[in-house]
Amino acid sequence: MALENLFKVVTTRFNGNSEKTDQKPVNSNNIPDNLLFKCPRCRNVVFEDEYKALNMVCPKCGYHGRISASERIELTVDKGSFIETNSNMLSKNPINFPDYDEKQQALRDKTGLSDAIITGEATIRGIPVVIGVMDSRYMMASMGSVVGEKVVRAFELATQKKKPIILFTASGGARMQEGILSLMQMAKTSGAAAKHSEAGQLYITVLTDPTTGGVTASFASLGDIIIAEPKALVGFAGRRVIEGTIKQRLPDDFQLAEFLLEKGFVDMIVERKKMRSVLSHVMRLHGYEKEVL
């Protein structure tokens, strides 16, 4: 029996927030579910090990899945070169939002993250760079005060040290739990991006699955070069919000990286395995060279 047929046909959509609506898969061969990966794009089922061996890329359709910030850093920068910045920054509960503190503590314990982004300095094929990586496991990588402040400080560090900056984005949008302060992070980060740009330095955005809402409507859309990973979901409004407005189902490829490329909002789509190479070449084309020790 083909692996794909291990499951009942799933009739729900494949995209974005599918977890809640998907039917529980029936596993007739008694393979534990946690050994299998069901691709949210092509709906095929593969062994988790195979998916992981490809660094979370679906072997059937090439969907580039979500990976943790630390895995991303390991895949992207030169071994041992990463020095984290502002690792102790924690958000407060500025509007006393119910259960926000408890929710964050639980996520900190579970993920080891302090908030939804890790920033730092590193080299990529010897070229010094400031890097920030968002992690969707932490409150869907929503942007509150900490994400905003760390992005701004990363831009400031890059401006001061005349370095390029690369931000790997993933986000559900602004963080509701911090109210209006979260919205203001959009202004703050965009302003810092402008200052880095005025200093003549290069900003590369890498849009990963999923990048939406206030992050799309601020720093994620402001890179000099905007790269996306294959089949990453990128948009302003959520699919369900739009479907609620238009009262019909959206096409499957709506808001995927390939759609954005076609519409003119992405410079290139780059596979994960080629990312280091592309990033380093693009940086060199902008005059950034290997650090001479």
Binding site: V146, E149, L181, A187
Partner: peptide
């Protein structure tokens, strides 16, 4: 705008 945000470190 730069100073808006609440956090500890």
């Amino acid at each position: 705008f730069r100073k808006i945000g609440e956090f500890t470190e």
